[in-house]
Amino acid sequence: MAAVTPLLTTTDLCKAFGGLRAVDHVDFSVAPGEVRAVIGPNGAGKTTFVSLVCGRIAPTSGTIVFDGRDITAMPAHERVRAGIAYTFQITSVFPNLTAFDNVALPVQRTLADGRGSGRLRDGVMAALSRTGLAARAGTPAGALSYGHQRLLEVAMGLALKPRLLILDEPTQGLSDGEIDSFVGLVREIARDATVLLIEHNMPVVMALADRITVLDAGKVLAEGTPDEIRANAQVQAAYLGTEAA
């Protein structure tokens, strides 16, 4: 991996809320094309960490470099334009807009001319088809089932044509069948984008991740391949040990 220039690097990244260090001196890097899982117990700082990466909150100190550019001070919407897409942990589609309009928003942002309604429609339908929602284009997002809303959320992320797609607990609340098709979808996405996956569901993590970073109390506890992480005693003590049934 050392030979590849990382897509995303954080150096000495910190975020403190009052006295609580939610993210504590995190050095982290992801290579292009990788599927990276970030795991850790509740309150380990996973969501805070990716929120720093996508710019929803500002770090207390440290730097973030994306594709060779220092983006630490860049506002969130510009980071999205630079290629970092974030899908929310709590489903936050636009409930009163149709599925089509939900996806049209990110598509129109990426279209150079923005006016060609034909190209807009093609882009929207492509993203909806990829997530299996094409037949529901005209349905208000709020009327979709929970599983479909999660898929719509991913479709919106996809439509941004991101280079780094951050999925924050995407399988939360999905049924087993939905999770299986979701894993297939992420594999497909990973063919042309780098994926940063925050996930609690260990089978999903083990099935998808190239590498895993374990956070605990805001610090990086371990990093390695799924097999290495599985074998890591420290991780087992801090995290897997409590969950492995």
């Binding site: 929803r56 969130a76 919407h77 510009e78 999205v80 807009l97 990110p106 942002r109 941004l160």
Partner: peptide, 17 residues
Amino acid sequence: RVLVAIRENEERTRMLG
């Protein structure tokens, strides 16, 4: 469409770029 999106969910709209 962007204006309505802002009304519905400002943070989500920002995170769509």
